[in-house]
Design a protein around this nucleic acid. Sequence first.
DNA 1: AGACTCTTGTGAACTAATGCACAAGGTGTC
DNA 2: GACACCTTGTGCATTAGTTCACAAGAGTCT
Lengths: 215, 215
Amino acid sequence: MASPGRIPEATVARLPLYLRGLDAFPVGVTATVSSDELADLAGVNAAKVRKDLSHLGTYGTRGVGYDATFLRFQISLALGVANVWPVVVCGMGNLGRALANHTGFTDRGFPVVAATDSDPDKIGTIVDGVPVHAPSQLGDIVRRFDVAIGVISTPAGAAQGTADALVAAGVTSIMSFAPTVLSAPDEVEIRSVDLATELQILGFHLHRSRIAGDS
Amino acid sequence: MASPGRIPEATVARLPLYLRGLDAFPVGVTATVSSDELADLAGVNAAKVRKDLSHLGTYGTRGVGYDATFLRFQISLALGVANVWPVVVCGMGNLGRALANHTGFTDRGFPVVAATDSDPDKIGTIVDGVPVHAPSQLGDIVRRFDVAIGVISTPAGAAQGTADALVAAGVTSIMSFAPTVLSAPDEVEIRSVDLATELQILGFHLHRSRIAGDS
DNA sequence: AGACTCTTGTGAACTAATGCACAAGGTGTC
DNA sequence: GACACCTTGTGCATTAGTTCACAAGAGTCT
């Protein structure tokens, strides 16, 4: 009953966690991993692991578990991890610099090939191996490096303009850290990460527990 | 039927977006905002806005909309935004430095009061106004500044130890950027943001569309 | 006052996601 | 080969979240 059909969004969001968890198993060595173990490694529960993996296919062995290497291969296949997706970072402020230099990106197939910034002092420089260009060069950069993903780490005010430029250059995947809503054609996928919002959610629960709890 | 009862998690996650959207309205000026407008400002749909706000209370006027100032006040109240929650940043690598210097945190009531790092060259220095201490000082820092939230931006290997130290110091809210699972007592709330995972989700959809689409 | 317009608040239908519980199927032992 | 023991895969119940659609007010205009 292995269905290569639609994979639920919630499952897609967890597949990278499983892949990360499987890093605990050395390559080349044959090892089996149970849904229970993998659940621990990924920080979810075993039922979810099994249900999620069943969406990819029937890769486990009843009574035994999953072959770690084979499972990693299959998840990688589903996620398209074999591909390398070049990334351009737009906005080289504090956050942009950190992202451009983030080893976790390159390591997982998302090399930062270039950056843009509107500050004339930064344009033309190379920061941690990443060349900084003027925003007007975006189209060129995208074409030259075959950029697949744009990361927006500009101030909120410049974010929409940057998004428009990315879309105009043909980029269809955007990850934005700007605290603002971006509009783009439907075929463009935007993931928005607002760090302050995350803290506010933590703050809400703190607030709640302090009210309910002590003074 | 205004219920100050339980607010659904999904709603809580959107309240900061509404608050952010309301920034478009100048303070002091009386203005009304419709669920439709607010939906645009927050990047969701109008039905969701109304349902979400109805969980806070009955603050709108039929036929008119919501009073922007009053609504902002009520959402702030629900989120506990009036409180200031001091933050400690653990791990002053690229990302940690960017976070410590992130104006969006302080602006929204999350001042970064101190940082820790295991690098002896950094300990004792002040980076962008934030003093860097040794990890062993965490307990002290938390007590002295009444720290409410710990941000973990250490390498994955040091993350669990850092989390343990934060918990031991009495911190019950943690935001982690380390690509690993953290374990902590149930009463501790952990929000994990793995940037590479986010990109992998984008990568999945790119992969999918390239398979389905052209060569 | 009555008619008309507007927008909220909310039941109700619908969709997505989670968690349970257990049969199915595999391994190992005697 | 029979039996005991594991762990997967999955049907089903449950819970959470979304969307629709419309009655219930509130304002405006004549």
